[in-house]
Nucleic acid binder design. Structure first.
Lengths: 220, 220
DNA sequence: GCCTCCTTCGTACAGCGTACGAAAGTTGTT
DNA sequence: AACAACTTTCGTACGCTGTACGAAGGAGGC
């Protein structure tokens, strides 16, 4: 009707839709990603997207898969601890770049090919390092629990940036006077509000503690 | 207008609104909780709710606080490891009862009084056990990361129940033939699809591993 | 009787996902 | 050249969402 590219040679593709959806989610947050806003950012009309995806849920599934594709994949050859360390730090970094993805993990049920590939490679690395099947399952669950949980807490902080920690403490400050939360005050003043404090740096501490405890022998 | 209780003595209260919202979220999931559906379940009209809450976000904040109130609060007197164990298991159980709450944690910025009380009590217990301020912050972050991450993964599983694990494996089964994911198959068949397997039982394994590694002295 | 406050809620609006079907271009066949 | 078949785009409309605005009506004080 209006059309420059009405038919035959497609102007659009499923990949382009997902790519633009990723950019839009990064820019505006997951609530800013609507079919209408996505179509506008692509330069097309809402209903055109439905030729490439069945519904919005399929877009969200695709986004999760794109995010998994960004996480560094371990190789079965290398030293397992170093491989898991790299993977963990990469996963955290990716989830910090796409904080909306954490909430999506909860509701997706159809893992994409990149997701499966990633899991497969990680499991292969642990098995090759001598973990039994049982140990592998437990170690993987433990590591991912830590990674996702840390990312979740990080995403719940006010905003990324240097030291916006004064803001997270601000609403509590009002109740400071009552002396009702002395230990929260203690943590806030002596740790969180220190000028060079960055919560993200704490990730390595917990990760190393877990890796250290995860020797194949002791993970039974 | 229509009303049995039009004015003066309120039929409603903020607490009742939040209570009903909790029940509705448990019954229908967080997407089933709309202002209209909530009003209907209470037996009033949508706009009446806005006398008690400023907007829907305030309801969600209130729900998170209600959930925190359900988590067993540690006592500063007892043995810290046992206190943290109890708290962790309680938190996981509560988040399994209210799986929608996990996704809410990400987006809430205003902690409620119950949330603050809970944090305060947990911090107090760790400090009383001899953890330094720094160690306390790290230990707490580590424990909560694990708890939230585990709950998140648990919520991502198909449905609660005995052994619905065959379902989560089903979509992958199609790609079994290709031999592309041998380790996923291995885990699926030898661990996940075992008739008595319950992912929730794995929580204790990781928790004990973390608690063991968390001695105040070594947590520097 | 009236005035003021508390509480309820009817109406309306802009936004959402998407079902349905029409329109228009390209390609293949004759 | 004509026509059919297929691919791709998108206009319209429906039922849903949160909520701004303001009217309505009962309760208590004077």
């Amino acid at each position: 009707m209006t059309g420059e590219g009405a038919a035959g040679r497609p102007e659009l593709s499923r990949g382009k839709v997902l790519q633009k959806a990723l950019e839009l989610a990064d820019a505006e947050g997951i609530t800013g990603l609507s079919i209408r806003s996505l179509a506008q950012s692509i330069g097309t009309k809402p209903m055109s997207l439905y030729y490439y995806v069945a519904n919005k849920d399929e877009i969200l599934d695709g986004l999760v898969d794109l995010v998994f594709a960004e996480i560094s994949t371990p190789q079965a050859g290398g030293e397992w601890k170093e491989q898991m360390r790299r993977r963990a730090h990469s996963a955290r970094e990716v989830l910090r770049r796409h904080p909306w993805a954490i909430g999506l993990l909860e509701s997706r049920k159809a893992p994409g090919p990149e997701t499966l590939k990633h899991h497969e490679a990680t499991l292969a690395t642990l098995r090759a390092a001598g973990f039994t099947v049982q140990q592998t399952a437990r170690a993987y669950s433990l590591l991912d629990s830590y990674i996702y949980g840390f990312a979740l807490q990080e995403a719940a902080l006010p905003i990324a940036g240097g030291e916006p920690m004064a803001q997270v403490a601000a609403p509590i400050i009002e109740r400071f006077a009552s002396g009702e939360y002395p230990h929260l005050v203690e943590i806030a003043t002596q740790v969180v509000m220190q000028p060079d404090y960055d919560y993200g740096n704490e990730f390595g501490y917990g990760l190393e503690l877990i890796l250290k405890a995860l020797e194949p022998a002791s993970a039974a």
